[in-house]
Design a protein around this nucleic acid. Structure first.
Length: 207
DNA sequence: GACAAGATTGACT
DNA sequence: GTCAATCTTGTCC
């Protein structure tokens, strides 16, 4: 492969363009191993590697926010792939999703857990944990991940090819480990669908 | 305008 | 294992 250079940004953008061609169910396992890069207002760069995802579709998925059509909250899910869908829930937590599919079709991949690669001390601070807190406590759940990476609703609809929140996907990479799947967590409807994916044995996976 | 539920987490028995 | 915290959103009146 080419070494990183001026085309780096363009390549990153192209890699996200592929998300517009994939539905969330196809993309969810493929996003395992992808990197989230978050630039804090201070300039510090945080990096984490995705280890757990869940797929949410549109009308065909009763558990999805988009199951009953567009609303102000889920509008981003109906847009084109490669953008962030961030929502607030339980009065205190945010959840970060990667929108998938073409404009008009609803779908997103919930990023449930990630492995901190860079900026662990800053993540611990954002999580209100001691600097020496175990890395497995920092982003091992959707709410924790958003707290550790300072992701909130101001990033809803954000283009993930751009600062300050970027997603880097190496589509050609070998799977980062054995991919396991099972029922999604925390939902009431459609609990039988095995649309949750994780890297088996990875200690940063939730629960 | 009222109200129930929620793609969670952390503390506690 | 159980449970409270906390508030936005969607739905129904």
């Amino acid at each position: 492969m080419e070494r990183p250079g001026p085309q780096d940004h363009a390549l990153a953008h192209d890699s996200l363009a592929r998300l517009r061609e994939l539905d969330a169910l196809t993309a969810a396992p493929l996003l395992l191993g992808a990197r989230i890069e978050r630039r804090l207002p201070s300039g510090e760069q945080l990096v984490a590697r995705i280890v757990e995802t869940e797929a949410y579709l549109g009308a065909a998925d009763a558990a999805s926010h988009a199951a009953r059509g567009p609303t102000p909250r889920n509008a981003v899910m109906f847009g084109e792939g490669g953008f962030a869908y961030v929502y607030f829930t339980y009065g205190m937590h945010h959840c970060f999703n990667v929108v998938c599919g073409a404009r008009g079709e609803a779908g997103a991949v919930l990023v449930r857990a990630a492995e901190p690669l860079r900026g662990r001390a800053a993540m611990a601070h954002l999580r209100k944990r001691a600097p020496e807190a175990p890395a497995t406590e920092l982003a091992s759940g959707p709410g924790k991940l958003c707290q550790a990476l300072a992701i909130d609703r101001t990033l809803n609809g954000h283009d993930l090819a751009k600062e300050p929140l970027r997603l880097r996907i190496d589509w050609g990479a070998e799977p980062a480990g054995e991919v396991a799947s099972g029922p999604r967590v925390g939902i009431r409807l459609a609990r039988d669908l095995p649309w949750r994916f994780w890297l088996r044995g990875n200690p940063h996976v939730s629960r």
